[in-house]
């Protein structure tokens, strides 16, 4: 990889811009797509397909072999409720490749002392969600137990492309939540997107264990595992 290409790749990652490093095998000729206009159309479209799938792969393009390495922006985890479980959750997130944001308008909860180095928002959850704009690489988790805070966030999450939506609360709490969302006009398909009670069934008791079960469920959904 030439110094110029390495700089361009690092700059794109810094700017959170999705790019694909395309390498012709075995000679190692390289180009950074989609910016570099020199790539032929078949190479370009195969590269963009790899980017969409977020999967590194070798592809035969005509008589050539190409390696496509997608560099997508980090996955995001939006946590509503700066509670004890949130502290455990944001501690696990970076190791799994997630950049976490914690949303809680109650200022004594969402403090830098409780969440060092984590992006915090004290906006009301629906406003925070509008600003954050969850996309297909975003997971949204609500933890407040308070419908005034959880519901606006979940409502926005269901109207977004968030790949994972999860809500803390018992089966009974969740059934009541679903009734409220039906009243708001959400269809059954949308409601089925909410993972509630949240997390994989690993018998979690402590906050870190619950956080682990939530992260495990997010990974399972992202990797399309049967366990999800």
């Amino acid at each position: 990889m030439t110094p110029a290409l390495l700089s361009a790749l690092l700059a794109a990652r810094e700017a959170k811009k999705p790019v694909v490093l395309a390498t012709r095998l075995p000679d190692g000729a390289q180009t950074l797509l989609p910016d570099d206009r020199s790539g032929s159309d078949p190479v370009r479209s195969a590269a963009l397909a790899a980017l969409a799938d977020d999967a590194t792969r070798e592809v035969a393009v005509g008589s050539e072999r190409w390696l496509f390495q997608p560099y997508n922006p980090p996955l995001r985890l939006v946590v509503v409720g700066a509670v004890h479980i949130a502290q455990a959750l944001v501690a696990l997130a970076p190791a799994l490749g997630f950049a976490a944001t914690v949303v809680d308008p109650r200022r004594s909860f969402a403090t830098p002392e409780r969440f060092p180095g984590i992006a915090l928002s004290d906006a009301w959850p629906d406003e925070a969600m509008a600003t954050l704009g969850p996309d297909s690489r975003t997971a949204v988790v609500t933890l407040t137990h308070d419908p005034k805070l959880d519901d606006p966030a979940l409502d926005r999450a269901l109207r977004s492309e968030a790949f994972y939506v999860g809500a803390l609360g018992s089966r009974k709490t969740h059934a009541a939540r679903l009734d409220r969302f039906r009243a708001l006009g959400h269809g059954e398909a949308a409601l089925a997107r909410i993972h509630g009670p949240i997390g994989l069934a690993i018998g979690a008791v402590t906050a870190p264990e619950i956080a682990l079960s939530v992260v495990a469920q997010i990974v399972a959904v992202r990797r399309r595992a049967v366990a999800a």
Binding site: L9, L10, P94, A95, F98, G117
Partner: peptide, 14 residues
């Protein structure tokens, strides 16, 4: 804790 993936070898190499 930072938000760099543990497996971000490219950043380390760069």
């Amino acid at each position: 804790m930072n938000t760099v993936e543990i497996e971000d070898v490219l950043t380390v190499a760069a």
